[in-house]
Structure formats: C-alpha cells, structure tokens
Design a protein around this nucleic acid. Sequence first.
DNA 1: CCTGAAAAATATCTAGC
DNA 2: GCTAGATATTTTTCAGG
Lengths: 150, 150
Amino acid sequence: MDDLDRRIITELRLHGRATFAELGRQVGLSASAVHERVGKLESSGVITGYHATVDPRAIGLGVTALVGIQLSDSAEADEVAGLLGGLNEVESCWAVAGDEAFVVKVRVPTVDELERTLGRLRRISGVARTRTTVVLSTRFEGRPNTLDAE
Amino acid sequence: MDDLDRRIITELRLHGRATFAELGRQVGLSASAVHERVGKLESSGVITGYHATVDPRAIGLGVTALVGIQLSDSAEADEVAGLLGGLNEVESCWAVAGDEAFVVKVRVPTVDELERTLGRLRRISGVARTRTTVVLSTRFEGRPNTLDAE
DNA sequence: CCTGAAAAATATCTAGC
DNA sequence: GCTAGATATTTTTCAGG
C-alpha cells in the first residue's frame, strides 16, 4: 500500500462510482493500472464494499438515537450483539469500555417508533438497562478521514 | 417514490457499484428504466452519494471513540460544530438532546493520538467538557435499514 | 507494476408507445 | 414511465516492456 493506493482510496471513499479512467487521471495512472490496484485492494480486504448513501428523511427515517446498553451480570456479550443485529432499525453497534457494554445507533420513522424500538431492546435477553440520547441533527456523518497526514 | 424505487435504493445501499443491468434484473426493469429512476433519485436528493467503505485498521485507524461534548454557556453550537468539522479525525458529529451538545465519533491510529485529539477537542473555543467512550470493537456499522417493513 | 490496444459489457441517448 | 435499439464509454483482459 503506497501513496497512490491511499489517494485512490480517498477518492473512492468520496466518489464510490468514479470510473477507473477518472481515478487514473487523478493519480496519474492508466485506467488498467487503477483497475488492477483497486482489485487488489478489494481482494485483500482493504476496500470492504461500495454503498449508496441516502437522505434518511427521504426514506422515512427521520429520527435517530444513540442508545447505551448495560448488560445483566450473566449476559453473554456476543449473544446480545447478535440479537441487536437482528433488529432492522439498529444501524450500528459498537462494543465499548465503561458501564455500558454497547452503544448502538438506531434509525426509525418517528418517536413513537423509537419508543417501540427501545421496548424491543429492553426485552432482549441479557439487556439490563438502556440509556437513550436523541439526535437533534446530524451535522456530518461517515466523513472520510484524509489519509495524507499519516 | 414507489416500491421499485425502494428496492433499487436498498440494492444500491448494499452494492453501490451495481450496474443498471444488474439492478434491472433484480427489480424486473430494463437498464434504461433503472438508469432513469436512479438519475431522478440522485437529482431529487434521495441518493446523496456513493462511497467505498474501507477497513479502518487497514488504513492505520485502529482506534475509535465516541466523545460527548458539553459547551460553555456562551458557546454558539453552530460555530463549535464547524470547528469540530475542521478536525480530520472527527468522522461524524451529531447534535444531541441532554447535557451534552454533541456526540462525535473520532477515528485515530493509536490511543496516543486519541489523547492528542481529545486535547484538540477541549481546546476548541466553547467546549467546556468532553466525555470519552472508547470503542472496543465495531460489531457492525452503517448497516442499511431495510425499507420493506415500513 | 506499468502501458496500450482489443474485446466485452455497460452507460447513455433517442424514438416510439 | 416504459421498452428497445443505436452509439459512446467503460470495464476487463491480455500482450509486452
């Protein structure tokens, strides 16, 4: 992984559907060379996928919340994580240090639906307590860290 | 926005570089029809972009933390949000309800660098206090909510 | 690891329903 | 808003340095 790879990655994180020719122009390589490099980055697991991002409100998911989850003493963290993954409205799940075992990000259409989702979370076996932080606005999200300064 | 649009969106959120022909096969339309629909979803702001996702460790960003940020009484939230956006290592920034004004997600190479980043956060004018939750593992992240059950 | 050319697939546009 | 066909680009493969 050299500087060219890093520049290609940065570009693809910003513009995931960029053509190989465009990427080549940016970094000064032929489309074939870029194609080859991207293929290697994909198969080596550096690039894990490509995803369209969507305005959550436009698809009826206007309410976001961060929920800290405390487990009961006997709970198996991996098992709970699996059950959290079973809920469609749980978008992200981080295991964290501190009193809480996990922080999850949930996205739902309405606060009514948020209430129902919190009920579902609390009913998961092993979940002792939840602490909900409602997101008022997303200032920015998933912004790619530039790789140049490292 | 009908069910076909929703299915196209779901597919593009999972496979952002899917071809129009592939999408057409999935939903039972011609490539041209899908092309037209996707163009409209893009120009109407439903689809906001396409992004490659990368294994953070592979690009030297093995440490993730969630940081709650309390502001001083006189602070301007918008101004602080702008300054938070100026830090490269701050990947996401949510304005939240509660004692804290923001929760940000930061990604850095090492815990040493995390310490430096927290210093930078605390030195931002208007920031009164930070509360850091270190992420031990990311169980899943940015997973697309299926749109069918709504 | 690269370039450049050739072949296959895709994106994009146009006409017509 | 769709299909189907024509054309422009792109992807993908491959020979060669």
